[in-house]
Structures are given as structure tokens and as C-alpha cells.
């Protein structure tokens, strides 16, 4: 069943993090992710962990929600940790068996890598929990807008429009897929049993109606957009202007300080 599909993970608590200008938020979070990977040692990771923890608390989104996002990648974290434990040599040998040797250096490296991944997941969760898909689309459109100087303005607008329409229709199409699936099951379609080939064949009665209806929707949507005087990005205004506030000012300084401290640690 795909009924429970929800789009994005926006979790509205109206916190200061939610209020940040999505353009700056996007850039700041990307910067933090980059610097998580640039952090040279545990001091750096410590600073970043503190920063991420602070942002999480400020977002007012329940911590359990963040932990939930870690679940799917536990395997990756463990694998990364194991690789580091066994393949990093140096330091004191703590344990040795057959071809495996665990060293203190290996253990430290494993913890270091695992923390990096966890931090990265947590900070990107902050972005998805506190920013609506629409705000993200607007941020991307705005950040890419300098491309208009090399004649790509219309392309950027089209990309953003496509993202918007895709976001708008994903729930509609999921719902429709579900309906068509039920309708074909009512005619005896069996999609759960049989080999791969049989299952692929059983998909046709769902894909074909879905394709036809999507084409019909696309046509009707194009007509509706025409009727609302859509002629592309040229001459278009926006109701909501993204505008930075005092909080953004603080957020920028915060990010710059964190990043600068990592650079400092790398150099000295």
C-alpha cells in the first residue's frame, strides 16, 4: 500500500529555524555539511556536534523525529565503522584474531567517521523538517537566478516550475495509482505472486491507465495555465518576496564562526 506516503517531512513548530529565509538556510546547511567533512579532528567534530545540537533544540522538532531519520542508515554507519575498525592500523593493538586486528587508532577513526555521518543526517533533517518543498524550490530558483546573466534565466524558471508541478502532483498520482491498482485487483489482477516476469506483466494494467491519465492531466493543466495568462518567467512577479530578517543575520554569523573555527583547526 502506498496510501501512507507523505510528501516531504515538513514539521511545523513555527520556531526561529522555520522563520529563516530559505535561501540562506539552504546555503548555511550546505556549508555546515561541507565543514563536517573538512573537520580535521575530534575538537572540530565536537564544535560541530554542539552546533548541530543547538540548531536541533532551536527547531523545536521532537528529538525522536530526528532519531527516526537515523534508523534507515544504521547499517551504513555500522559498516563504515567496521571498515575503519579493521582496516586502520596504527596505535596500540587492542585485539587480534585471524586476519583482523583492532587498534586504538582504528577505534577512534571509526567513531570519528560514524559521528560525521550522523551529524550530516541530522543537519539535513533540520532542513527538511523546517522548510516546505515550496520554500526549497523558491530558494533554488533564487540561488540559481544569477544564471540569467548567461542567458539561462528562462531555463531556471522552467526548472523551478517543473519542480513545483511535480511536488503538486505526486500526492494526486499516488492516490490515482492506488485506485487503479484496487480496480484491477477487483478484476482478479494478482500483483503479489509469481516470478519477476509475471509481476512485470501484471503491472501493465496499472501503468497504461496511469500513463493515459497523466497525459490527460498534463494537457488540461497546460490549458488551465494558459487561461491564467502564463507565458513563462518573463514579466512575472511573485507574491511572496523572500526577505532576510534579524534571525538570518544571526544565523549567518553563527555559520561563519563555526566554519572559521574549522578552518583554524585545519591550519594550526
Amino acid at each position: 500500500m502506498i496510501k501512507n506516503f507523505t510528501l516531504g517531512q515538513y514539521f511545523n513548530t513555527a520556531s526561529v529555524i522555520h522563520k529563516l529565509d530559505s535561501r540562506f538556510k539552504l546555503v548555511e546547511i550546505i556549508a555546515l555539511i561541507v565543514f563536517i567533512f573538512l573537520a580535521p579532528n575530534f575538537v572540530g567534530i565536537g564544535i560541530l556536534s554542539a552546533a548541530v545540537l543547538l540548531v536541533i533544540l532551536l527547531s523545536k522538532v521532537p528529538v525522536t523525529m530526528y532519531l527516526r531519520n537515523l534508523k534507515p542508515i544504521i547499517a551504513i554507519i555500522i559498516l563504515t565503522a567496521l571498515l575503519n575498525i579493521f582496516y586502520v592500523s596504527g596505535g596500540t593493538v587492542l585485539f587480534s584474531w585471524w586476519i583482523f586486528t583492532v587498534t586504538s587508532e582504528g577505534l577512534l577513526k571509526a567513531a570519528f567517521m560514524a559521528t560525521r555521518i550522523v551529524l550530516m543526517i541530522l543537519i539535513s533533517s533540520v532542513l527538511t523538517y523546517t522548510t516546505t518543498p515550496t520554500e526549497l524550490t523558491d530558494a533554488i530558483e533564487s540561488l540559481l537566478s544569477p544564471l540569467r546573466f548567461i542567458g539561462l534565466g528562462e531555463a531556471v524558471h522552467t526548472l523551478a516550475m517543473m519542480m513545483t508541478i511535480a511536488l503538486r502532483f505526486i500526492p494526486t498520482l499516488t492516490d490515482e495509482t492506488d485506485k487503479i491498482m484496487s480496480a484491477q485487483k477487483a478484476r482478479g489482477a494478482d500483483m503479489e505472486n509469481g516470478g519477476i516476469f509475471k509481476r512485470l506483466k501484471a503491472l501493465m494494467p496499472i501503468l497504461i491507465p496511469l500513463l493515459f491519465s497523466s497525459v490527460r492531466r498534463a494537457n488540461e493543466l497546460a490549458e488551465a495555465m494558459d487561461c491564467r495568462c502564463y507565458t513563462g518567467g518573463k514579466g512575472r512577479t511573485r507574491m511572496k518576496k523572500l526577505s532576510p530578517t534579524f534571525y538570518d543575520f544571526i544565523a549567518i554569523i553563527f555559520t561563519v564562526v563555526i566554519c572559521a573555527s574549522i578552518i583554524f583547526l585545519r591550519i594550526f
Partner: peptide, 20 residues
């Protein structure tokens, strides 16, 4: 259960959208 569905024929709303 698959066999049962032939015995209880269910016609959905706007069933024309299931034609393929």
C-alpha cells in the same frame, strides 16, 4: 481471496479510468 473477488464484482467510481 483472489477467487472471491470474481464472486463479488466491484465497479469503482469512474471505472473507465481502469481500461488499458
Amino acid at each position: 481471496i483472489y477467487q472471491k473477488r470474481f464472486k463479488v464484482g466491484l465497479v469503482f467510481q469512474y471505472p473507465e479510468y481502469q481500461l488499458f
